[in-house]
C-alpha cells in the first residue's frame, strides 16, 4: 500500500455507531437468561421501576446485564483510547497498556490495596490501581527511551520485565490472601466483567469520560509527534510537558479500566491498528473512532466469554488474549519487516 485510500469519516462513524448499537442490543438480550427482543424493548421502554412484564427478565436486565454492558462499553473505549495515545507518545504501534505492563502495574496497585485492606475505603482500590498504572507508565517511558525515541525491542522487553514483576506480586498476593480477598486478587489478573455493578459503573465512567475528553486536546500534538521529538519542538510543541500529561491520561484511562475489570489485554493494540488502516494515522478521528470500536470489540469479547461455554463463564481477559496474542505476533512481524529487522 503506497497510496493511502481513506474511507469517508462520516461513513465510518455511522457504521461504527450502528455496529455498537447492534452489539449492545444483542449483548443485552443474550446470556444464560435469554431476553427476547420484544421483551427487551418493552423493558427498556417501561423504565427501571416498572416490573409488569416479567420480574426475572426485568431484574436480569436492570441489575445484571445493563451495568455489565455499560461497563464493557466504558472500559473498551478507555483501553482503545489509552492504546492510541500510548502509541502516539511512544511513536510505536506496538505500545499498549497491557503489553508494556501498565495494566499489570495497575493490577499490582489494586492487589496491594486489597492485601493491606484499602478496599475498606471508598475508591481505595481504584486509587491504588491508578497510582500503580501511572507509575508503571512513567517507568516504561523512562526505561525504554534512548536518544529521544523508543525502540521496539526495548519497549517490549521493558514490558516483559514489568509484567514479570507484576506477576510475582500478584502471585504473592494470591499466596497471602484470605479467601475473601483471593477471589478479588484472581480477578485482577484474569480480567472479567462478571463483577459489574452500578457502583463500579459509577466509579469508572466519570474517570473514563474525563480521560477521553482530555485526550481530545492531544490529537494535533500526537500527529506532530510522529515526526520525532525535535521536529515537533521546532513546530512549537512543548514535547516533554505534553508527553507527561499524555502519560497521566493513559494512566487514568488504563488504571480506571483495570480497577473495574482487571487486565483486559490487546484491545488497546488491536483497535487503534484497525482504525489506522481504515482512516489513516491522524489522531483527530482515530481517537473517537477507536473509542467506538474498542467498546464494540469488548462487548463482543464479553458476549463470547458469557455464551461460548454457557452457563459457565470464561474470563474476558482470556478471550481477548486468545484473539489478541496471535494478532500481536502478526503486527510484530510486519513492524519488524518495516524496520528491516532488529538486532
Amino acid at each position: 500500500m503506497t497510496t493511502a485510500r481513506r474511507t469517508s469519516i462520516y461513513a465510518v462513524g455511522i457504521f461504527l455507531l450502528a455496529l455498537l448499537l447492534a452489539t449492545t442490543l444483542v449483548s443485552l438480550a443474550s446470556g444464560a437468561f435469554q431476553i427476547s427482543f420484544p421483551d427487551l424493548l418493552r423493558i427498556i421502554g417501561n423504565g427501571p421501576s416498572d416490573e409488569s412484564i416479567d420480574v426475572v427478565a426485568h431484574n436480569v436486565f436492570w441489575q445484571v446485564r445493563l451495568p455489565r454492558v455499560v461497563l464493557a462499553v466504558v472500559v473498551g473505549a478507555s483501553l482503545a483510547v489509552a492504546g492510541v495515545i500510548m502509541q502516539g507518545i511512544f511513536r510505536n504501534p506496538l505500545a499498549e497498556p497491557a503489553t508494556v505492563g501498565v495494566s499489570a502495574g495497575a493490577a499490582v496497585g489494586a492487589v496491594i490495596a486489597i492485601i493491606v485492606g484499602l478496599n475498606e475505603f471508598p475508591l481505595g482500590v481504584q486509587i491504588a490501581a491508578f497510582i500503580g498504572g501511572t507509575l508503571s507508565t512513567a517507568l516504561v517511558y523512562v526505561l525504554s527511551r534512548s536518544d529521544g525515541k523508543t525502540e521496539v525491542v526495548t519497549l517490549i522487553l521493558t514490558g516483559i520485565a514489568i509484567n514479570a514483576f507484576a506477576g510475582a506480586v500478584i502471585g504473592f498476593g494470591v499466596f497471602v490472601a484470605d479467601d475473601d480477598d483471593l477471589r478479588s486478587v484472581t480477578f485482577w489478573s484474569l480480567g472479567t466483567l462478571g463483577l459489574a455493578t452500578w457502583k463500579a459503573v459509577g466509579v469508572v465512567t466519570p474517570l473514563a469520560l474525563l480521560g477521553m475528553l482530555i485526550s481530545a486536546k492531544f490529537s494535533r500534538v500526537l500527529d506532530v509527534l510522529a515526526l520525532g521529538d525535535r521536529p515537533a519542538t521546532h513546530l512549537g510543541v512543548r514535547v516533554e510537558p505534553v508527553r507527561l500529561q499524555a502519560i497521566a491520561v493513559v494512566g487514568l484511562l488504563a488504571s480506571s479500566a483495570v480497577a473495574a475489570t482487571g487486565i483486559i489485554a490487546f484491545v488497546g493494540l488491536l483497535v487503534p491498528h484497525i482504525m489506522r488502516i481504515v482512516l489513516g494515522p491522524r489522531h483527530r478521528h482515530l481517537l473517537w473512532t477507536s473509542a467506538l470500536l474498542g467498546a464494540t470489540v469488548t462487548l463482543l469479547a464479553d458476549l463470547a466469554a458469557r455464551t461460548l461455554l454457557s452457563p459457565a463463564e470464561l474470563p474476558l481477559g482470556v478471550v481477548t488474549a486468545l484473539i489478541g496474542a496471535p494478532f500481536f505476533l502478526l503486527l510484530l512481524r510486519t513492524t519488524r519487516r518495516g524496520q528491516g529487522g532488529w538486532a
Binding site: 500527529d223 515526526l227 525535535r230 521546532h234 513546530l235 491522524r282
Partner: peptide, 25 residues
C-alpha cells in the same frame, strides 16, 4: 523552521498530511 538531516516518521501519514503539519504553529 528547521529541516532535519533525516526524518523517521512513525505512522503511515500521507505526503499532504506531513506537509500540513508545517502549519501547526
Amino acid at each position: 523552521a528547521v529541516l532535519p538531516q533525516q526524518m523517521v516518521i512513525s505512522f503511515p501519514f500521507t505526503v499532504r498530511e506531513i506537509v500540513a503539519m508545517g502549519r501547526s504553529p
